[in-house]
Design a protein around this nucleic acid. Structure first.
Length: 841
DNA sequence: AGCACGCCGACT
DNA sequence: GTCGGCGTGCTC
């Protein structure tokens, strides 16, 4: 007997039952949290599924978490709490994604919860709402105040109410949270969290004939019966004209959109309601995908010989390389090559991800791709709603979308069988997430993804980043070049305009050189379009007093305020602070307060004065805030009534306009002399990209005018000659001499605190400790960044340079993290914030 | 992150 | 005397 029991028990225990789950919680804490798995859940709980757990003291919060690990070793230091609910029967997050999360958290020195937070579209995160309910066991109404009594009476009428609902019912001026708190204290009510999925499938209401009338005879009887009710008869007839069930009775099953049948006249609406009431029609709902069915018209893409050659070369190189760089000049038609390769990858049964910078995705390219791939293509874009993003996510899981075009965050989609990842405009800095953690680079993440799934990566650019080109030169990446413009279009003729000379000869018209002014005039005459580039928004970046040199500055940040004429206000581009424009100088009272420098707004203004008959559009952050503003501007420009488009770097990407024959570039010197080791590279990329907007149509050469104080600068000469390789050789030498990427890895630590002394002390200590361990040649700073105060926080940067090889980078990062944690536990420095930016740009 | 707990100023 | 300010510490 005892023996039997023993075997029973041992078999029970040896069974692989999971009792504990390690969870990723959406909070910035660098560890997993262990929860208990309730008995009934044990066999259905999967790694990668979402669960709901109680969190924090009391039952203060409920959170959605993702299961990272299942095991049965109880935690020793604490009593694990129970998981309260399982949300997914099947894993929502795949094994590949969990691996990616872990890798990113380690590589980018952030918390895995932060990674999960950006990875999951918020529609898949769970929202919880506090609800209030009466306690049925409460029977001491004499304890309540008058207000509490009123609230309780209100509550009794409903099963449960949210705070907002209560607020509405209780009327203005009632302090609902306080009342609830005291009611909870008196045990009169219970507060609980209602959890619900945010994702709501779009439903459409449909109607169909009651099955009774699917038989022909019955239908005829019905129509006869309705003879005296012409309006109702008409509705039935209309239904039959859309759903010809006389021929095929099965069609009735699918029914018809209620909206179609109603056809916006009220009479038929009421008739339909009656028919439904009399059970002639029945209504039902179906899930409507938000992305309408665009059956692919299967447009044939014809490659030019050059494109064909490039595509073949890429395929050949993929045999021996996992990563290939396609270096193709602007307008060489890289997209067609991509399409060809995407098609091949899809044909072989694998998934494809095509990454684009945010702004490029808003443009014509999506339409072109859609024409080829139709509804097999998912689009993942930040301007899409949560629900739409969840549908793309689910479409990837279900296999509906084998191919996704998307921005940075599309690397987080649940692919499990990638064959090809394309990173277009590979050099684009917007691939690097800057502000909230994880500060990841989508190109580099894509390369890791591809590595895990044995996929190939194609990097494309007209002006590759030095890092990438270096890898290609070293033979670590393949390299394919496409130097012929599509359809025999020639590269634009780039001319430099000497501003010093024009100023001396007094030929400047405000910010416009006479050369640019004349070119614009001629272009307008010819009814051709022009694009003007000035990488600075607003009217003017400074407002200054001529008498005392006072300048308008942001009270929270160490920057001058930019004057915005349209709203007649001064604005800080760092924190958003707004100020009125002073009529007189606040320090000396002088009325000579002038604007200095110019932004896109001022250019727009001056153009209107120079060319009052012409239509001028401006495209920058200020004019594209609204949802569709960007497309609207593009469309308006495309249809041709617009003569001149003024814009910031927004206009540099992906815009293909046939009729643009002139590009003007302002303030090139400011781009070139920016105090950053990448300034030259950036300036070259930017100027080349903008120039590429000119003359994309065959048979006519476009013109680019660059206004500069010094036309002799070597970088401008290289731009003129389209000499990327020359620029590369020169830059790479400098990078080597001064040990900058790609010869080292960079990690930037930013220390922030409201008190400058404290901030500085923390930074000094951190730098000193790091220097001790890593050597002074690897540590730069602490140094005040260009803008040393943002939102009233004083900043200090420490730059860490680590060799690319022979150094255990993981260990170095772990050490840095240790030192940071150390400082954060110091009594005097605890509330400083220190963020690490790995591979900072 | 967000929430509770805790210790000091201006109010009934 | 208290309400509430935000510094500090913790969350399985």
């Amino acid at each position: 007997m005892e023996n039997q029991l023993n075997t029973l028990f041992s078999s029970f225990e040896s069974e692989e039952i999971t009792f504990f789950a390690d969870l990723i919680l959406p909070i910035p804490v660098p560890k997993l949290f262990t929860y208990r798995v309730p008995r009934g859940m044990a066999d259905m709980l999967k790694i990668g599924a979402r669960v709901i757990v109680p969190f924090g003291k009391k039952n203060s919060r409920v959170l959605t978490a993702v299961v990272a690990k299942l095991h049965n070793s109880p935690p020793t230091a604490y009593q694990a709490r129970y998981i309260s609910e399982v949300l997914d029967e099947y894993p929502l997050v795949t094994g590949y994604q969990l691996e990616l999360f872990r890798w990113m958290a380690e590589y980018y020195m952030c918390c895995i919860g932060d990674v999960m937070n950006v990875a999951l579209p918020s529609g898949l995160k769970i929202s919880s709402q506090s609800k209030v309910q009466v306690n049925p066991d409460f029977d001491y109404p004499e304890l309540l105040t008058e207000f509490e009594g009123v609230l309780l009476t209100e509550l009794k009428k409903h099963p449960a109410l949210s705070y907002e609902e209560l607020g509405r019912l209780a009327g203005e001026g009632t302090n609902v949270p306080a009342l609830i708190k005291s009611l909870v204290g008196k045990k009169a009510v219970i507060v609980f969290e209602e959890v619900r999925e945010k994702y709501i499938p779009k439903m459409i209401r449909k109607v169909r004939l009651h099955p009774n009338y699917e038989e022909k005879e019955q239908l005829l009887v019905l129509l006869q019966r309705l003879e005296k009710l012409p309006k109702q008869q008409e509705v039935v007839m209309r239904y039959l004209s859309y759903v010809p069930m006389q021929r095929n009775p099965d069609l009735n099953q699918k029914g018809l959109d209620k909206a179609i049948l109603n056809q916006d006249d009220e009479l038929s609406q009421s008739s339909l309601t009656t028919l439904i009431k009399n059970q002639v029609f029945e209504t039902f709902e179906v899930i409507q995908p938000r992305f309408s069915d665009n059956a692919a018209p299967q447009v044939e893409i014809k490659l030019t010989d050059a494109q064909r050659a490039a595509s073949t070369q890429i395929m050949t190189q993929f045999e021996s390389q996992n990563i290939v760089l396609l270096h193709g000049i602007t307008g060489s038609g890289k997209t067609e090559v991509y399409i060809e390769l995407i098609q091949q990858a899809l044909d072989s049964g694998s998934q494809v991800l095509y990454l684009l910078p945010e702004i490029a995705l808003t443009t014509q390219i999506v339409v072109r791709l859609q024409r080829v791939f139709g509804d097999n293509m998912g689009i993942y874009h930040s301007k899409f709603s949560d629900n739409e993003r969840v549908e793309v996510w689910k479409g990837v899981v279900s296999g509906q979308y084998q191919f996704v075009v998307g921005v940075r965050s599309a690397v987080f989609l649940p692919f499990d069988n990638l064959g090809l990842i394309i990173v277009d405009e590979e050099h684009e800095t917007s691939y690097k997430q800057h502000d909230p953690a994880p500060r990841y680079h989508a190109r580099d993440v894509a390369i890791m993804l591809a590595h895990w799934q044995q996929a190939k990566v194609l990097l494309g650019s007209a002006t590759p980043s030095l890092e990438t080109y270096f890898q290609a030169k070293q033979g670590r990446y393949g390299l394919v070049e496409l130097f012929q413009r599509f359809g025999d279009a020639t590269l634009p003729n780039i001319l430099l305009v000497n501003l010093q000379q024009e100023k001396r000869q007094k030929t400047m018209k405000n910010e416009f050189s006479s050369a640019l002014h004349a070119a614009l005039e001629a272009n307008i005459e010819r009814k051709e379009q022009s694009i003007l580039f000035q990488n600075r928004r607003g009217y003017s970046p400074y407002m200054q007093c001529e008498d005392c040199d006072w300048t308008a500055e942001c009270p929270n940040c160490a920057v001058s305020l930019t004057y915005h004429q349209r709203d007649a206000e001064l604005r800080c581009h760092y924190c958003g602070h707004k100020d009125q424009v002073p009529r007189t100088c606040p320090t000396c009272g002088s009325t000579k307060v002038r604007t200095i420098g110019f932004g896109t707004e001022k250019l727009e203004d001056q153009l209107q004065i120079f060319f009052p008959e012409s239509k001028v559009l401006r495209m920058d952050l200020d004019t594209t805030r609204a949802k569709n503003a960007y497309q609207q501007i593009i469309q308006e420009f495309e249809t041709g009534q617009v003569d001149i488009l003024v814009g910031t770097q927004m206009i540099t990407k992906g815009l293909d306009f046939d009729n643009v024959s002139l590009v003007g570039i302002f303030d090139a010197d400011r781009l070139i002399h920016f105090p950053d080791f990448r300034a030259t590279e950036r300036a070259f990329q930017m100027i080349t990209q903008v120039s590429g907007r000119a003359g994309r149509r065959a048979g006519r050469q476009g013109t680019v005018l660059i206004q500069t104080q010094n036309p002799q600068q070597p970088i401008l000469q290289k731009v003129i000659q389209n000499d990327y390789k020359g620029l590369y050789e020169e830059e790479i030498q400098e990078r080597q001499d001064f040990n900058y990427p790609p010869f080292c890895r960079l990690i930037k630590l930013t220390v922030r605190h409201t008190d400058k002394i404290t901030s500085h002390r923390a930074a000094e200590r951190l730098a000193a400790e790091l220097t001790d361990a890593l050597g002074s040649s690897r540590i730069l700073g602490p140094e005040e960044p260009l803008v040393e105060r943002i939102r009233n926080q004083f900043l200090f940067d420490i730059l860490i340079k680590i060799e690319r090889d022979k150094v255990n980078i993981k260990a170095v990062k772990a050490y840095i993290q240790d030192r940071i944690n150390d400082i954060l536990t110091d009594k005097g420095l605890r509330q400083v914030s220190i963020v690490a930016d790995v591979d900072c740009l």
